[in-house]
Write a protein that binds this DNA or RNA. Structure first.
Lengths: 233, 233
DNA sequence: CGTTGAATTGAACACCATCAACGAATGTGG
DNA sequence: CCACATTCGTTGATGGTGTTCAATTCAACG
């Protein structure tokens, strides 16, 4: 992964610090919890492979997906300061994770300020994504929401190197999409269908292809920007 | 401010580091921009006094308020990694800010890892608030949204020590509320009115009092949790 | 071949947006 | 001091977007 231009280079010393910080790997099956919503996790993770997502549920079961997670994303910083109030993380595909013990987070900051800075970088980037999702849920109509989400996920997957001939793996069903953009399942279906019939995108057996990115960008009022390389912990 | 139990104690050395990090104060009038939405700010801030809020606008003018800022909040970390895409910050009252030059952020992390850790703490807490707002905009109905927002702002103000005899300063008009919870101005008004007539809360000339916190908590499915002391940069 | 979960579609309705109008409070200039 | 403009809160009427309910299709799988 580190070879990818999407990630910042890292010194040998930092790499060693990351190595000593980590505490093994973990594999989670599709549909299983990486972090239970009910209790704060004693671990942090870096996602190595697969798709996951963060979510919250209201007491009557309504669920909101907060953000999606791709390889390179750091999981669990928000919980460092949880006070009980937390969110769940669920694997959407089989997922492999690098495990870090939470109580080593401060020692890591202390001994490797650069890595602490990088973690802040990642946390800030994550918040910006939630910001965007909040704009979507609060101020966009159904068509705009779907267009925005499709472009968002497609771009991120492509950047994470998951594109193959224009297709990216898309392991989400319509309930996931509905929960991410704040619509009902039925209306999500109808909106998705309409965009598909307009020829803007295409699904095939868990893969997604964008046929008219400009149209989707314009519909969603959501345009790509150049991205800097991302730190990888 | 540091005397308040809401904030974590800080060592003399850290205090000196904060002092050397800072770069003066700034006062912004109510309704003026602290950070322009269009361009990334070369400065970071700690809010000393007053209310402010972060927001984003779509190209046709629809606005979404992302989160509210109170004394002690750290402003601008998200932008450290902006890539152009950013958000605005506007003062809701007269506001005084402590100014930090952005290019000293990394040196601060480097020389004072503890302060770096604290900044991450604040960034993570901020993201959790945006998470909550996203659940609101995505999955709550109008009544629940208003109830949740009122309790949220009231609690935060109280915690920041802004309560006087059960009243807290509330410098927002109904357009602000509508933009925060993703409703139209008119429907926000009607919902607010209904809750007021039920005797759940009361407004008076820019101040807010909660008359029935339990009812509002239950309506919004949004319950208070014990909070740990917050770092203050 | 029956079962299950997901996608799809139609119909009825509710919630919320939009439009329009008015009142109260405040400020401004003549 | 009054005429006028401006901003904000309020309310009613109307309609649309999206929800809810219900049923059907379809693919996958035992």
């Amino acid at each position: 992964m580190r070879a990818s231009p999407a990630f910042t280079p890292v010194s040998v010393e930092e790499l060693l610090a990351i190595q000593s910080f980590r505490h093994g790997e973990r594999v989670v099956e599709a549909g299983r919890a990486v972090i239970e919503e009910s209790r704060a996790s004693p671990q942090l993770f870096t996602l190595y492979s697969g798709w996951a997502f963060r979510f919250k549920t209201l007491s009557d079961g309504r669920r909101q997906i907060l953000s999606f997670l791709l390889p390179g994303d750091f999981i669990g910083v928000q919980d460092e300061f949880a006070d009980g109030q937390t969110h769940g993380v669920e694997a959407a595909t089989v997922v492999t994770l690098c495990v870090f013990p939470r109580d080593k987070l401060w020692p890591l900051f202390n001994s490797q300020p650069r890595l602490g800075y990088d973690i802040t970088w990642l946390a800030a980037r994550e918040e910006k994504m939630v910001d965007d999702n909040l704009v979507t849920a609060g101020r966009r109509n159904a068509t705009e929401r779907v267009a925005m989400l499709l472009m968002h996920l497609y771009r991120r997957a492509r950047r994470a190197g998951l594109e193959r001939d224009g297709w990216v793996e898309f392991p989400f069903n319509q309930q996931h999409i509905a929960d991410a953009i704040g619509l009902s399942l039925v209306h999500t279906n109808k909106t998705l269908r309409r965009l598909q019939q307009l020829g803007l995108h295409e699904f095939d057996n868990g893969w997604l292809r964008i046929l008219d990115p400009k149209a989707l960008e314009a519909l969603g009022d959501y345009f790509e920007r150049p991205l800097r390389p991302t730190p990888l912990i």
